[in-house]
């Protein structure tokens, strides 16, 4: 059981980081990006190709992060432009449809060009014992990077004026505009950050398990579930929900089965919407 919980924490941290990008983009701009998983996978393929071309891992990973950020920027500059002209439900629905189209396009392209492509990053050395459970160094490194990223995000949003500007737009867009903040500039910044975070999760996940060209749908699904449970627009909620659902997923997958665990996660998301529509840490309006 302890091993399952530790595995769940490793997975949950990554779920949480995935959801941060999704939740911030929604909180800022009312855009639900269903291509989030495919952006992560595409960035992973950039890393795999760069490695195959002989680049050192740090440089390959850097290119992957850059690719993730670039994809966020391209989304903002192209497919999302008509979305920005709409308000309310129409905006959410159009963003769902268009980013779903992007997800199919990216996955189709990757499947066509790199059908057998996958990213797997092996970190050498023996297992490290944690609470009597041998943990692979890859899992520990992935968790450490993810935790460090969460800490950096916390510091950014809490202590920098740019971070506070992003929070102000999430809290009250009209109020932020009256202060002199341009909400769209903040959304663009967060779309780029969201792409970088998706790439980072893909790279760290590849330290634990291979990421192939078909992983996008499951990544988006997990990110969406964690986002709903954590509360749309809530970073701390994403971390908490990621950890809880990561542990639930790991325990359920071991005791019952992988497919059942996904159904349990979807059930948790549905139950959250029914009982706490604003999410675990959300404040009901």
């Amino acid at each position: 059981m302890i091993a399952n919980i530790l595995d769940g924490i490793v997975l949950g941290l990554q779920f949480g980081l995935l959801a941060v990008g999704l939740t911030l983009v929604y909180g800022l701009g009312g855009v639900l990006n269903l291509a989030h998983g495919q952006m992560a996978v595409a960035a992973a393929m950039v890393v795999a190709l760069a490695q195959a071309a002989g680049l050192p891992i740090w440089l390959a990973a850097g290119l992957g992060l850059l690719a993730g950020g670039l994809m966020g920027l391209i989304l903002d500059l192209t497919i999302l432009r008509p979305v920005y002209r709409l308000r309310g439900e129409a905006r959410v629905l159009l963003s769902l449809l268009l980013t779903l189209g992007v997800s199919f396009t990216v996955e189709g392209f990757l499947n066509w060009r790199y059908a057998l492509g996958a990213l797997s990053l092996r970190i050498g050395g023996g297992a490290v014992e944690i609470l009597g459970v041998p943990m692979r160094r890859g899992s520990l490194a992935a968790s450490a990077i993810t935790l460090a990223t969460f800490a950096a995000l916390f510091l950014f949003f809490r202590y920098t004026s740019l971070g506070r500007a992003v929070r102000s737009v999430i809290e009250d867009q009209e109020g932020a505009r009256l202060v002199g903040i341009y909400p769209h500039r903040m959304l663009r910044l967060i779309l780029v950050l969201s792409g970088v975070l998706a790439a980072l999760v893909a790279i760290t996940r590849a330290m634990v398990t291979p990421i192939d060209v078909h992983s996008g749908l499951s990544i988006t699904t997990f990110a969406l579930i964690v986002t709903v449970v954590g509360g749309l627009g809530n970073v701390a909620g994403a971390l908490l929900a990621g950890l809880i659902l990561g542990i639930v997923n790991a325990v359920a997958a071991d005791l019952i089965g992988t497919y059942i665990s996904l159904i349990i996660l979807l059930g948790a998301a549905a139950l959250t919407i029914l009982t706490r529509p604003a999410g675990l840490l959300g404040v009901r309006e």
Binding site: S161, R164, R167, E171, D172, E174, A176, G180
Partner: peptide, 15 residues
């Protein structure tokens, strides 16, 4: 139309 998660100083600093 203040930003509730921030202190008074942080709110004014945005302006």
């Amino acid at each position: 139309r203040h930003f509730a998660s921030m202190t008074a100083l942080e709110n004014v600093a945005l302006g």
